[in-house]
Design a protein around this nucleic acid. Sequence first.
DNA 1: CCTTTAATGAGATTGAGTCTCAAAAGTAAT
DNA 2: ATTACTTTTGAGACTCAATCTCATTAAAGG
Lengths: 141, 141
Amino acid sequence: MATNIQLLKDGLKNEGLRYTSQRQIVWDEICKTDDHRDAEDIYFKIKTSGQKVSRATVYRTIDVLVKNNLVRKLELGDGRNRYENKLDSSHHDHIVCIQCGRIDEFMDENIEKLQDEIAKKYQFKIVRHIHQLFGLCRDCR
Amino acid sequence: MATNIQLLKDGLKNEGLRYTSQRQIVWDEICKTDDHRDAEDIYFKIKTSGQKVSRATVYRTIDVLVKNNLVRKLELGDGRNRYENKLDSSHHDHIVCIQCGRIDEFMDENIEKLQDEIAKKYQFKIVRHIHQLFGLCRDCR
DNA sequence: CCTTTAATGAGATTGAGTCTCAAAAGTAAT
DNA sequence: ATTACTTTTGAGACTCAATCTCATTAAAGG
């Protein structure tokens, strides 16, 4: 986790933000897994581990991490955002099982290229995209 | 609007649901435009037009219409679902301006095919998908 | 240290959406 | 039409994720 501390410090410094123990705790918690967890999950994991970070600070810190490109926000459209650390994974989209909640990741260069073409056609400058496939996974179908 | 009434009646009958004046009012309101409006918009348009349908009924009716394939639900991941009538448009995805809120529609057969391949690769049976591009439109960039 | 300014915590607030349950209204059979 | 049955509706309470407020605490730099 040593390098993660530096990543956080650098990210914060770049934005003129302060390095605090609470931000470290939240970042550590997010780095602990490769899951796609929501803010409440992260908050309660921290809480039950005995560390003290308020809910507001967890939400605020997650926003900071998202803005600093350390965390990716996942909007599944179910009124609950999920987050994953961006450390060891490059850009990808998600394929979600509507039965068991399993989330796999996919990436397709051709789709990315086609998206660029669509953007050009509609004269948009794209800054992000959401691409999610919902269905039944192998075990649930 | 004459055919729309029949569409609604048939859709409801197929599901063993009752045809009511409230459902007609909501369906009419959704058919009035090709916009992508949220439930509150639709509710307040009805309210200010002097017709009386409760908020709960608007939400419930929209769900009924979505389930009956008369209305498409748009999840932009901003905690507010939008809806559009499915009458005169076939399947499409959306390209959204993060500045002015403009929403254009796109459809790309190749992307659809690539999605099918991804589903096959991950052994998912896809039932729906979300694909949205966010950026700045021609006027806002 | 001291000062300045940002960050935090606790709890109130928001906002979209859902739930409850008594009253109202469709529907089908008589 | 009347009745009997079942679904739908309305009003407002409630939920849940997320944000806001503001007094207090703590970084960071001189």
